[in-house]
Design a protein around this nucleic acid. Sequence first.
DNA 1: ATCATTTGTAACAAGATAGGTTACGTGTCT
DNA 2: AGACACGTAACCTATCTTGTTACAAATGAT
Lengths: 154, 154
Amino acid sequence: MRRDSRLSRMLHVLIHMDRHYKRATSETISKMLGTNAVVVRRTMAGLRDSGYVRSEQGHGGGWELARGLDQITLFDIYEAIGKPPLFAIGPSVDQPECLVEQAVDAKLGDALKEAEALLLERLRTITIADIAADFDRRMPEGRCNIHTEQSASA
Amino acid sequence: MRRDSRLSRMLHVLIHMDRHYKRATSETISKMLGTNAVVVRRTMAGLRDSGYVRSEQGHGGGWELARGLDQITLFDIYEAIGKPPLFAIGPSVDQPECLVEQAVDAKLGDALKEAEALLLERLRTITIADIAADFDRRMPEGRCNIHTEQSASA
DNA sequence: ATCATTTGTAACAAGATAGGTTACGTGTCT
DNA sequence: AGACACGTAACCTATCTTGTTACAAATGAT
Ligand code: FES
Ligand code: FES
């Protein structure tokens, strides 16, 4: 698999839980995301540990939101899934002896750090509620074709 | 292997060729980078096709610069190695049906595009000569500990 | 001409990581 | 007691960069 899609997936799930279900099982969520229930538990474990969702075991259990979407930024979720690396390029060795290599890494690192800072600042600024608001603009009825067709349970 | 280090490596090689050798074989370069000669040929093939270096086969052959370092930007090299993906995160599916997912990808994509634009703009601005100048500031004598020790040929 | 040197390239192995799958344990409601 | 649902470990798969082996082709030296 290529790019880490956990952030994107978790945002999807949280909006889904806010708009469609108050409580959802890993099984339901996995159908929605087109993946496996274990993957859902594994990924959402981070969100639970960070206090954004609650999970309950046993009969009637599942996942539910622990706070409003306007109280969660994209950075919060990025952090909750373990701050995976943002960039796919970088230096070859960590502590290069060669001074040319040090100069290369410093200059390239500066550019990467700038871009990273900008990206993280954006993630900090945007709340999940902002994305949900965008969704409302795209589909005023608030319908999700996948949910309304109940194909998730098929 | 984790992050794509080709850009960093190629910058290193080009400065190396400018400062230390006029012509270098893949074998020599591979020792310098701590890798294999075939990897060097494979990666530098892109630079050759883009006109930044020349290669010559046979006895006495090898690689040499085709233009000055002030005529090559970091973006040029990034492009020459095939514009590998810059980010390690992204959406899970390309054309999501779910409208929530579309909204997520749009918002997250905007942030990523902004960061990408900033990064590419930096890469376009910085020439390899700029990095070489930084190297001169770090080590005014212009010595490379690896080269001077001749450990590359050991 | 022959041989050593060096690039060009294909084919395959290795290492890393995200994701998928199976299995089983634990808690909870009926 | 039994069904349901999370928790977690273990293992497999897919994909990508990098490393390695092997061999062909070109070029200069002898
Ligand atoms: S919100 Fe996208 S499948 Fe439910
Ligand atoms: S310039 Fe870094 S090893 Fe030569």
